[in-house]
Amino acid sequence: MTSEHSDSGKHQGLRLRARLRYLYHGTQPKAVKFRLMVIVIDIAIIGFFLATPILKEAGWVFYVADYVVATILGLDLAARAYAYSDIRDWLKRPIVWIDLFVLATLLFPVWLANLGFLRLLRLWSLLNSDLFWRTIGRRFDDTRVEEITRALAALITFVFVVTGFVYAYFRGKAEHINGYLDALYFTVATLTTTGFGDITLPGNGGRVVSIIVMLVGITLFIRLAQTLIRPHKVKFPCPVCGLQKHDPDAVHCKACGEILCIPDDGA
């Protein structure tokens, strides 16, 4: 009986893994619809993270919502890990560690309250995930939209992470920073180097934060601008050297000279 139960449990586990692999990695319409639902839920969760500074004032209601979100995120991460062929390889991915950290801030909201602003890294991890691009990005035959989306995601995530940091650590300490909108205003003004000067952070620590925001912000702006003006490229791996991106009308690989045969979907 023990052996039969063990075999039955193993069989059910294999069926569950096969089902999850189909849903998270399949190309069939049902699998795509499932992943679209996951992405919609993720966007709703990110919206919850954005509204956290306001929702915290709701008291216990906020903590109930916090644990509901933690349950959803935990189940999603567990399902993705089980559907992955090698869990150890899955754990080596930086995006996974970001999601696990976000989950930790949800499970321990009191102890990790000052790090809650890092939850918005979930936006970056979503827009850089294979799941997102297998589902949404499958409509595009080149990398231009993907590159612009990733660059924009990095910039927006940085803005809201810095805003959350400034709100968490300088509210009430810096003059005129009394709410989330004040922190957002300071972040955008500093990041764009507009520097109106009506809101500043106190002390040497405040100056260091301002310098970092300006330097990183300029870098992210430049990256976004480069992706917007960079010549159009398509993803087509060279069969010899493996170079991924080429001009749409390329005949030879720029790296090794191999003759290419890039499909023309517009023909």
Score class of each variant (00 low, 15 high):
residue 123 L to I: 12
residue 123 L to H: 12
residue 124 W to N: 04
residue 125 S to V: 14
residue 125 S to Y: 09
residue 126 L to C: 06
residue 126 L to Q: 03
residue 127 L to S: 03
residue 128 N to I: 02
residue 128 N to D: 12
residue 128 N to G: 08
residue 129 S to H: 05
residue 129 S to E: 05
residue 130 D to P: 00
residue 131 L to C: 06
residue 132 F to P: 05
residue 133 W to S: 09
residue 133 W to E: 08
residue 134 R to M: 14
residue 134 R to Q: 15
residue 134 R to T: 07
residue 134 R to V: 03
residue 134 R to A: 10
residue 135 T to M: 05
residue 135 T to A: 09
residue 136 I to V: 13
residue 136 I to C: 01
residue 136 I to Q: 00
residue 136 I to E: 01
residue 137 G to S: 08
residue 137 G to H: 05
residue 137 G to E: 09
residue 137 G to P: 06
residue 138 R to F: 06
residue 138 R to A: 14
residue 138 R to W: 07
residue 138 R to S: 14
residue 139 R to C: 08
residue 139 R to W: 12
residue 139 R to S: 09
residue 140 F to T: 05
residue 140 F to A: 04
residue 140 F to N: 03
residue 141 D to H: 12
residue 141 D to E: 12
residue 142 D to A: 13
residue 142 D to F: 12
residue 142 D to C: 07
residue 143 T to Y: 02
residue 143 T to M: 01
residue 143 T to S: 10
residue 143 T to F: 00
residue 144 R to Q: 13
residue 144 R to N: 12
residue 144 R to S: 11
residue 144 R to C: 07
residue 145 V to F: 03
residue 145 V to W: 00
residue 146 E to Y: 07
residue 146 E to N: 11
residue 147 E to C: 04
residue 147 E to P: 00
residue 147 E to G: 07
residue 148 I to V: 11
residue 148 I to D: 00
residue 149 T to A: 04
residue 149 T to H: 00
residue 149 T to C: 03
residue 149 T to F: 01
residue 150 R to I: 11
residue 150 R to K: 11
residue 151 A to P: 06
residue 152 L to I: 04
residue 152 L to H: 06
residue 153 A to P: 07
residue 153 A to E: 09
residue 154 A to C: 13
residue 154 A to P: 06
residue 154 A to F: 07
residue 155 L to G: 05
residue 155 L to Q: 05
residue 155 L to D: 07
residue 156 I to F: 12
residue 156 I to H: 03
residue 157 T to C: 04
residue 157 T to S: 08
residue 157 T to L: 00
residue 157 T to I: 03
residue 158 F to D: 13
residue 158 F to Y: 14
residue 158 F to H: 13
residue 158 F to G: 06
residue 159 V to S: 10
residue 159 V to A: 08
residue 159 V to D: 06
residue 159 V to Q: 05
residue 160 F to Q: 10
residue 160 F to L: 13
residue 161 V to E: 02
residue 161 V to M: 01
residue 162 V to E: 10
residue 162 V to K: 02
residue 162 V to N: 08
residue 163 T to N: 01
residue 163 T to S: 05
residue 163 T to K: 01
residue 164 G to N: 02
residue 165 F to N: 02
residue 165 F to S: 04
residue 165 F to E: 07
residue 166 V to N: 01
residue 166 V to F: 03
residue 166 V to Q: 02
residue 167 Y to T: 04
residue 167 Y to C: 06
residue 168 A to P: 04
residue 168 A to V: 11
residue 168 A to G: 08
residue 168 A to W: 06
residue 169 Y to N: 11
residue 169 Y to L: 09
residue 169 Y to Q: 12
residue 169 Y to W: 15
residue 169 Y to E: 15
residue 170 F to R: 05
residue 171 R to L: 07
residue 171 R to T: 15
residue 171 R to V: 07
residue 171 R to Y: 06
residue 172 G to M: 08
residue 172 G to A: 03
residue 173 K to F: 11
residue 174 A to P: 02
residue 174 A to L: 04
residue 174 A to Q: 06
residue 175 E to G: 10
residue 175 E to Q: 14
residue 176 H to K: 15
residue 176 H to R: 15
residue 176 H to Y: 14
residue 176 H to E: 15
residue 176 H to S: 14
residue 176 H to A: 14
residue 177 I to K: 02
residue 177 I to Q: 02
residue 178 N to C: 09
residue 179 G to P: 08
residue 179 G to S: 14
residue 179 G to I: 10
residue 180 Y to V: 12
residue 181 L to M: 15
residue 181 L to A: 15
residue 182 D to E: 13
residue 182 D to C: 14
residue 183 A to C: 04
residue 183 A to V: 01
